[in-house]
């Protein structure tokens, strides 16, 4: 909640943007995590770059931990909630052709109307969901 967190967030965001643009500059691909993951699992031809991207993504926190940037110790939601949430995220990102990375970062940067709509809708739905869970139920 401190302004120093905002600076750290912005700097981390710049790294995220750098990772995404590296994939566009060198591989010519949109850095959509849901699309990359789903295609890595369902399409075996020419997916080596997808697996490499996922290995980098999953291994990165092990390296940042050396500099004191660690993964969370506590996950707020219960196991059943996480199971339902995972299923919704998996199905929703496929039907909706993307998630926070593909629509939110790459799509908005490309000035894509589809991505603008998708981002506003999933952000709005998520805000509504959190508001109901925390302040109504």
């Amino acid at each position: 909640m401190l302004p120093s967190d905002w600076i750290q967030g912005f700097a981390g965001g710049m790294l995220i943007g750098a990772g995404a643009i590296v994939l566009m500059l060198f591989n010519g691909r949109i850095a959509g995590i849901s699309g990359i993951t789903a295609s890595a699992l369902t399409q075996f031809k020419q997916s080596a770059w997808r697996w490499a991207f996922l290995v980098g993504l999953i291994a990165a926190p092990l390296v940042t931990a050396l500099a004191g940037f660690t993964l969370p110790e506590n996950i707020p939601a219960s196991l059943p909630t996480m199971a339902v949430a995972g299923l919704l995220v998996g199905i929703g990102t496929r039907i909706g052709s993307g998630c926070t990375s593909g629509h939110g970062i790459c799509g908005l940067s490309r000035w894509s109307l589809r991505s603008l709509f998708a981002t506003l809708i999933f952000m709005g739905t998520a805000v509504l969901t959190v508001s109901i869970v925390r302040h109504v139920m």
Binding site: G12, A20, I58, A60, T64
Partner: peptide
């Protein structure tokens, strides 16, 4: 290059 991209992305997510 995909490995590097994924690494930067993951590092950014963790640091942010």
């Amino acid at each position: 290059t995909a490995l590097l991209a994924g690494f930067l992305f993951g590092a950014g997510l963790t640091i942010s």
